[in-house]
Design a protein around this nucleic acid. Structure first.
Lengths: 345, 345
DNA sequence: CTGTTAGCGCCTTCAT
DNA sequence: ATGAAGGCGCTAACAG
């Protein structure tokens, strides 16, 4: 009976006996509309509780004012810090953020990307799943004209846009600190060898030892697949050496947590028999009785903000050219230095 | 020059020299379209890499196949568990989830709700910010025909849909456990008095003491605003009593973490001088050298799944009636029992 | 300054 | 079994 529903510009136009285009323009503060008309329109819109139908606008403008952010996990402190900043930046541009978590599963990751593409997001920020090896989606998104910015876990490809963290500076500081505390037997629990992040860490580790004139013991470099068991196995390998290390740098804080548990289970004491430093600066450390000696901070918030900024640059450029092959300027990378912080002990 | 772009049904129709309606129907497996035609259409669609323009569909169908989930924080373990299950459920229905974090700020919460409303989400799942006192948005969303399901932090109103956790069962078990371990001086750090969740916990605390014939000491009930300082102050109040408690139930795990730090700073030892049990079962406990004695599990995953299920019921009903005043059946509530788990010590 | 017209891509009566 | 036509709400040439 009553077709109540949401009021439209048509409704406003009818009541005011003017055309819909005038209403539309008035609502958007178009300069060429008379002040009085504009006021009348806005007043009525207010009274009617008018709200533009964004689905119509999205449709018409071929833009959704929405960006997608895909991360391995929403709950890791590193990522939630990044999310917050991305959201802030996006909101300040009146964009909405859609989040997805890949759970480090490449299939899931691809599915999320396709969903977001289906929803016509205007751009994507992605920290790739740890074991994604195929990056066809880059091509897919390129064809669809959806710009993408990587951060944190970045594929080793030339033509991509990314915020990357220089892992070396922090590693250098970590080793320097260990050495200055008298450690000579310094080990390294690295992540999966195929990851660029692992390669870079390992190079940095080797270089830092050299520059400190500490001989590199091959047995002191072990690997984990980042699973709980992998992490425990890695530290056990080190502990079981005839000469075990007194200091360990590990891939990240989650590795360190598992490693510490394993250390304790062997009757050893953290920060006494063995010391840790790892990447990430997990906020929970302040609640631990024996936290790592220090953390290598990677500034997730900053990375997120920069990623967002870069993405919006690309989106705006897209609009300007607003044509085929939009993403001409590919391959920009911004490097952020990691650094040692929180001397917890 | 080349209007490459995405193919549309029009394009397909032109190439096949049939009408767009036929293409549309074929693509949607409409029964009245001949098998051959259907095949031809689908084949060409495939070749052209056709993908329906969802923004057009959203617009046309007045549905976005998107639900909004708003939580105080995405990084709290409790919420990420809930998110995962909500996502799973939604994805199985081909819905997309958009997430928002209120950071316990009522203003921010309201803004997010309005944004989501603007994006025309089909429904919302909400764990309200701790200190939201005004719930006008319920009315706003009702008018907009957007169903809403609460969980975890649920306003104390009759006409809302919600998944609620029965906090009493877990509290009873917690007190029973303390008593059976010989504790008689049992204290309680409660959250803000205005929260339904606080009221329920306190009732449960009192009842459980009574049923265990332990006298209630008024000094043993203190409050925190859930800030780090508030948490520390609360436990210090207890510690500084002439007769201090030997066991403490606290509002949640985050309170306990701060309390434990404060305890240590006073030279006392957790799980020796003082024992804790709290709500939530934070996954980090297994990495702590002195975790709480046990946790009261609230099954966030289950709550999330139930909330999603309830929301989709409401959405489907909305479609069926597909009329004004859609949410006739308001006020269903599902209660989930909390229970004691993880005897960590 | 304002109105007219057209169309975004898709679905859906209503015909045939 | 298929086509023609209209419209969702909004914006944007193109006219005046």
């Amino acid at each position: 009976m009553n077709k109540s529903k949401q009021p439209t510009i048509k409704e406003i136009a009818k009541r005011l006996k003017i055309s819909t285009s005038t209403v539309s323009r008035a609502l958007n503060d178009h300069p060429s509309i008379g002040l009085v008309t504009t006021m009348r329109v806005k007043k009525l819109a207010d009274e009617l509780n008018y709200e533009p139908n964004r689905t119509a606008i999205f449709f018409k403008q071929r833009k959704t004012f929405t960006i997608g952010v895909i991360l391995p996990s929403l709950s890791e402190a590193f990522f939630s810090a990044a999310i917050s900043e991305i959201e802030n930046f996006a909101n300040s541009k009146n964009y909405t953020v859609i989040l997805g978590q890949s759970l480090d599963d490449p299939e899931r990751e691809l599915r999320i990307i396709n969903t977001m593409k289906g929803h016509r997001v205007d751009g994507i920020i992605l920290s790739s799943a740890k074991n994604t090896r195929e990056f066809e989606y880059i091509e897919i998104l390129r064809k669809a004209g959806i710009p993408i910015v990587f951060f944190d876990c970045v594929p080793d490809l030339p033509e991509i846009n990314a915020i990357v963290s220089n892992l070396k500076t922090g590693m250098k500081e970590a080793i320097d600190t260990f050495v200055s505390c008298g450690h000579r037997n310094i080990a390294f629990i690295n992540g999966p060898a195929h990851l660029p992040a692992s390669k870079e860490r390992e190079e940095a580790f080797t270089e830092a030892l050299v520059s400190n004139k500490v001989p590199l013991n091959r047995d002191f470099v072990v690997y984990t697949d980042l699973s709980e068991k992998g992490n425990a196995d890695a530290i056990l390998q080190l502990i079981n050496l005839s000469q075990r290390p007194s200091a360990v740098v590990s891939f990240n804080d989650y590795v360190t947590l598992d490693a510490m548990n394993a250390v304790r289970s062997k009757g050893l004491t953290v920060n006494q028999d063995i010391f840790f430093i790892s990447y990430a600066n997990y906020p929970i450390w302040k609640y631990m009785e024996n936290p790592p000696m220090a953390s290598i901070e990677q500034l997730p918030g900053k990375q997120g903000a920069l990623a967002a900024e870069m993405l919006f640059d690309l989106i705006d450029r897209n609009v300007d050219l607003n044509t085929d092959d939009p993403i001409a300027t590919e391959g920009q990378k911004i490097v952020l230095e990691s650094k040692l912080v929180n001397q917890h002990v």
